[in-house]
Design a protein around this nucleic acid. Structure first.
Lengths: 191, 191
DNA sequence: CAGATTATGTATCAATCATTCCAGAAAGGG
DNA sequence: CCCTTTCTGGAATGATTGATACATAATCTG
């Protein structure tokens, strides 16, 4: 029928995600993308439509990965408190390992004022995090791990907000001690 | 001696700060700045040197204003807990009033990967917030408003991190209820 | 193998980017 | 009033932006 594509779109999307993640939307030029993906502009526009559309696709991919990670971390754990602490501690370590990345969703929230669909997607992604946490906290409360007087949704909203803060101080290179102190204090809200 | 400048540099810096704040560094073009400041490019480069230098100057200005506001809010208040709550509640309202702004420091932390001096300034500004909070909390602890078992620095780091999170969820348009729930939960760390 | 169809890469596009240049205008000192 | 100095604003600057045109190459169907 026709010539077959010489590169894998999903793999290319992942590489583009990584580049947008590190460099930001505006600072990533089309030439940067073409070099990173090792394709020509013809192939690029045939496959992705535009830089904007690829960014949205990469954001989608990131949100999906992040969602799965969180779902698994909360689902597998026998107890909610250690699980939440572990998730946040892992984010702290990730930011320490590479402060140039941070969180693509957080980055998008401040980088995409002129890109409405990205802003909408960010709002939705944060709501997803809230929802996952609220569900896990509710189950934990039913198991007696959390005081029945607490409101799981309120706690989830708190943790979601704190999580965003962790990504910012991580990107701002405040250091491990700073972030871990903040985390230790934050965990006290849950007991 | 020579011709006098027809515009006020400080006033122009404030207007530029506002523009960078709303639109971000990359999305604010020189033409945008020239129009906003109502000056020609000759005057611009004579007064500010470059777009990058003006951005750093605007960032400096923002940090200074933010620092003074926080210092005053914490200094004037008779009690630390209502003061902290008030500061955070005011940020929530500010983000609701104009979600396109957020916090210039937070924005800079994700928008200026290629601008090292800005990144350094961001780190320092967050340390300043930590320091102001830690000082106020220590004094409050001496006055008996906070349990002597608590570590003021840890609390300050927690609040600083949470504060960054508030700015993110504010920019992400999560809504008043969401942010206020998060705040209510966060305040429990302090008692 | 012929033909239809799609991918590929190069050349090119107009638009915009930050910056520089420069001729003229304003202002104070002599 | 003249001279020096600085400011002003618009016209270039070359570089880079995202995107397109197009000729060629590859692949599958028949």
């Amino acid at each position: 029928m026709a010539r077959t594509r010489e590169f894998d779109i999903d793999r290319a999307t992942d590489r583009a995600m990584d580049l947008f993640w590190r460099r930001g939307y505006a600072e990533t030029s089309l030439q940067d993308l073409l070099k990173e993906l090792s394709i020509g502009s013809g192939s690029f526009y045939a496959a992705f439509g535009s830089k904007e559309q690829l960014y949205l696709r990469a954001l989608e991919r990131y949100i999906s990965l992040q969602h799965d990670d969180l779902e698994q971390a909360l689902g597998e754990a026998p107890q909610i408190l250690p699980a939440v602490r572990k998730v946040l501690a892992a984010l702290i370590e990730a930011d320490l390992a590479d402060p140039t990345r941070g969180c693509l969703v957080v980055n998008a929230s401040t980088q995409c004022g002129e890109l409405p669909p990205a802003a909408d997607r960010v709002t939705d992604a944060i709501r997803q995090v809230e929802s996952l946490l609220a569900g896990a906290l509710e189950q934990a409360q039913a198991r007696g791990e959390i005081s029945p007087e607490k409101d799981p949704r309120e706690l989830a909203r708190f943790l979601t907000t704190f999580l965003q803060g962790i990504r910012i101080v991580g990107r701002a290179r405040m250091g491990r001690e700073f972030a871990q102190d903040a985390l230790s204090a934050a965990m006290r809200v849950l007991d």
